[in-house]
Design a protein around this nucleic acid. Structure first.
Length: 428
RNA sequence: GGGGGGUUUCCCGAGCGGUCAAAGGGGCCAGACUGUAAAUCUGGUGGCUUAUGCCUUCGCAGGUUCGAAUCCUGCACCCCCCA
């Protein structure tokens, strides 16, 4: 079977190739035949995050180009902890936790690759399945024997930790053996020839290639994607609340959407190339749009729309856009309780007795009780500086009172502090 | 073991015994400008019934004094020099 597209050329103009083994042979192979390839994801949390998105999208592109992806969930490797790119030894997760995480991640993966499309259907595997019965002695004899420690010590992931205060445990040191063996196993079981991953995975990937050569006398390949960093050098996908997660429970579709809407111009081009499905001409048209009419923010809108739809589905996107309209729109008038609940779903809510409102609740108190201000002094300051809003209408008088007239539904009203911080007050 | 220096509000850092809730910078918050951007500018940045008022805060515990972050004593931790 032939691939439908030159994947290397595609990845290349998008800037998605950091390194590959055998740059002569691999592109030719990928042009000539449909290849089975894999990428692994360790279940360190019950959701993937934006950091995983580069590899995920690349896997997706491979499938669309006519190759077959194997997605590996690291039930076994997750028990050990990958030292790559980590400056500290990490705590081990419990088996319970891992099982839960594996299940959760499994569902998310289905959004990116197609598990039901004939011969190119993606395959989902868990390395716990083949590692769990591998005894320590067998592993040392069959796999460990092929790993010269001096080579292992030279790997960047290990070297960095050896030189640091934190050091590295034998457990994490052994991580690369497991990942290397995964590659060999997937070659045996699925004819997997290529492993892809982030640039920090290079050492682990080449370890697998070496192992396959020694154990099976076969030539496997590796390809890594660059790490997604911002123009200022910091990591993409970090928010004040921590990582930007793919799970709607951890990061609401609204916040996910907003993250991309707010991407810096300097980063938008790279993001589009990395994450968008748009063809080259359209992305270049967006580049021009950013130059000539930046205020339209066409790139950010495209990015936010496409990614939110992919990760949260069309309904998720719609909710995020509707919320955006309200959040950045004019005054909030009458809305139904359901609508308000939906739009402000991930905004903090506070419940107060209705009587307070009947008696007239000072805005200062409301700001504190909603959690938007930490003290009355802070609330007064906010009021004085013009940063306090009730139902998106600025309130500046320090003594202003909230009354039932301020309700936008039968029992709720919306407070805002500054540009973007909201809270819903419910009176019962 | 001997000698010296330090510990200040989120961080760095200044601080005459009263006029110190404590300079300045950073960060953070708000506002203006704008494109829900960046840069810039302005204001704010312990709490309280907003008050020429009260309370809490300057490593910890005591003391001197009308009055202490500022002086004294002890304790803890950190740094430097000599042995």
């Amino acid at each position: 079977m032939k691939p439908t597209q030159d994947i290397v050329a595609e990845l290349s103009w998008r800037g998605l190739i950091h390194q590959m083994t055998d740059p002569e042979e691999l592109p030719r192979l990928l042009r000539e035949q449909s290849v089975t390839l894999y990428a692994g994801f360790d279940p360190t949390a019950d959701s993937l995050h934006v950091g995983h998105l580069v590899a995920l999208m690349t896997l997706r592109r491979f499938q669309q180009a006519g190759h077959r992806p194997v997605v590996l969930v690291g039930g076994a490797t997750g028990m050990i902890g990958d030292p790559s790119g980590k400056s500290q030894e990490r705590n081990l997760l419990s088996r319970e936790q891992l099982r839960h995480n594996v299940e959760a991640i499994r569902e998310q993966l289905a959004r990116f690759v197609d598990f039901d499309c004939g011969p190119l259907s993606a395959v989902l595997v868990n390395n716990y399945d083949w590692m769990k019965d591998f005894t320590y002695l067998d592993f040392l004899r069959d796999v460990g024997k092929f790993f010269p420690v001096n080579v292992m010590l030279a790997k960047e992931s290990v070297k960095a930790r050896l030189e640091s205060e934190a050091g590295i445990s034998y457990t994490e040191f052994s991580y690369m053996l497991l990942q290397a063996y995964d590659f060999v196993h997937l070659y045996d079981e699925h004819g997997c020839l290529l492993q892809i991953g982030g640039s920090d995975q290079w050492g682990n990937i080449t370890a697998g290639i070496d192992l396959a050569r020694r154990m099976r006398s076969v030539q496997l390949y590796g390809l890594t994607c660059p790490l997604l960093t911002k123009a200022d050098g910091t990591k993409m996908g970090k928010t004040e609340q921590g990582a930007l997660w793919l799970s709607p429970q951890r990061t609401s579709p609204y916040r996910f959407y907003q993250y991309w809407i707010n991407v810096d111009d300097a980063d938008a081009g790279r993001c589009l190339r990395f994450f968008s499905q748009l063809p080259r001409e359209e992305i270049e048209a967006l580049d021009r749009s950013r130059e000539q009419e930046p205020q339209k923010r066409a790139s950010q809108k495209q990015l936010a729309e496409e990614l939110t739809r992919l990760v949260h589905g069309p309904e998720g996107l719609q909710r995020a856009q509707r919320a955006t309209e309200i959040f950045f729109g004019r005054e909030i008038d009458q809305v139904s309780q359901e609508e308000l609940e939906e739009i402000f779903a991930d905004v903090p809510h506070a419940q107060l007795p209705r009587q307070l409102l009947e008696e007239g609740l000072p805005v200062v108190d409301a700001l504190v009780r909603s959690g938007l201000c930490r003290s009355k002094s802070e609330a007064r300051r906010l009021l004085a500086q013009g940063g306090a809003y009730v139902n998106n209408r600025r309130v500046a008088e320090a003594e202003a009172l909230l009354t039932p007239e301020h309700l936008v539904t039968s029992s709720s009203l919306v407070l805002r502090a500054g540009r973007k911080k909201y809270a819903v007050l419910q009176f019962e």
